[in-house]
């Protein structure tokens, strides 16, 4: 009977606690509900807020399409960019009219298959008459590529702090490399038996061999060079290979002078036609 009484007391206590619990959440719930309602009202009354959010989305869409257009137009896509400024204006009276601001920029992106990461500083000096902006420091980090020609060019651009030259030359460099690749691929397709690309179409080397004339080989080395001023120029060389016997019989030194003749051919015909005539000269029998 005592245990029953104890249970009654425990149950009574629990019921009292539950009743209190029933009251409290109701109030709390009402509060959140009220808060939500007021928030909603705030949003709705602030019609500008809704409108601006709509505007924001369409504005963002416009900017995104502009960015896409610009990256297609220039062939350069900038993925990330940030800038910090530091005011270096001397507060002393003498120099008060001269404003100096140092900007630290970080920019990363890619130009076709070449990715780059740039860090540069620009010092802006404004006095009464003029504003000058000078790049005071330029660091270029590039992922290692198969294009070894680029590393020398990159250090030259860094040394001269010539950011615009870097992009200009990079553009022309990539353009030439793409052209070289297309040309190599074209000849490989046209003369599959004679043309070999031992290091792939993206490399600088094309080999021409004839099935009818074993031992003979024409190696074409096509480099894309960037000169001191950042101008990009193709440089093609011909390395003929022939069996020893053939060299001995070559009274007119045709093979010896072939590299020079090839240069002349390039000047007269242009790259594609010169390569074509070279392939045909070795492989006439194969394709007749």
């Amino acid at each position: 009977m005592d245990t029953q009484r104890a249970e009654v007391r425990a149950l009574e206590a629990e019921i009292a606690a539950l009743r209190r619990a029933c009251e409290e959440p109701r109030a709390a719930g009402e509060d959140t509900w009220r808060a939500q309602k007021s928030l909603r009202e705030m949003y709705q009354s602030d019609s500008e807020g809704w409108a601006s959010s709509k505007d924001l989305r369409s504005h963002l869409g416009h900017l995104e399409s502009e960015l896409l257009f610009l990256s297609t137009l220039t062939g350069i896509s900038v993925r990330n960019y940030s800038m910090k400024t530091e005011d270096l204006t001397n507060t002393e009276k003498k120099e008060k009219s001269i404003m100096k601001v140092l900007q630290r920029h970080r920019l990363s992106g890619n130009c076709h298959m070449i990715t780059f990461q740039l860090e540069f500083q620009i010092l802006e000096i404004q006095n009464k008459e003029s504003l000058s902006s000078v790049i005071t420091d330029l660091n270029i980090i590039m992922e290692p590529t198969e294009y070894s020609e680029l590393s020398e060019f990159v250090s030259r651009a860094e040394e001269r702090r010539d950011l615009l030259m870097f992009f200009r030359s990079l553009h022309f460099f990539v353009e030439w490399c793409e052209y070289r690749k297309r040309t190599f691929e074209h000849f490989k397709e046209k003369y599959p038996a004679a043309v070999h690309l031992p290091e792939g179409a993206a490399s600088s080397c094309m080999v021409v061999r004839s099935a009818c004339q074993p031992g003979f080989e024409l190696v074409i080395i096509w480099r894309v060079q960037i000169d001191e001023e950042g101008r990009v120029l193709p440089k093609l060389d011909l390395l003929p290979k022939a069996p020893q016997q053939a060299l001995e019989l070559d009274r007119n030194r045709v093979l010896e002078t072939a590299p020079l003749s090839f240069r002349a051919l390039l000047g007269a015909l242009g790259i594609e036609a010169a390569l074509e005539s070279l392939i045909k000269s070795l492989c006439t029998a194969d394709y007749d």
Partner: peptide
């Protein structure tokens, strides 16, 4: 995106539709 569009001037070519 606005900042990136601005940054294009460092490539030598920037633009506006």
């Amino acid at each position: 995106v606005k900042a990136i569009l601005q940054a294009y001037r460092f490539t030598g070519l920037s633009g506006k539709l």
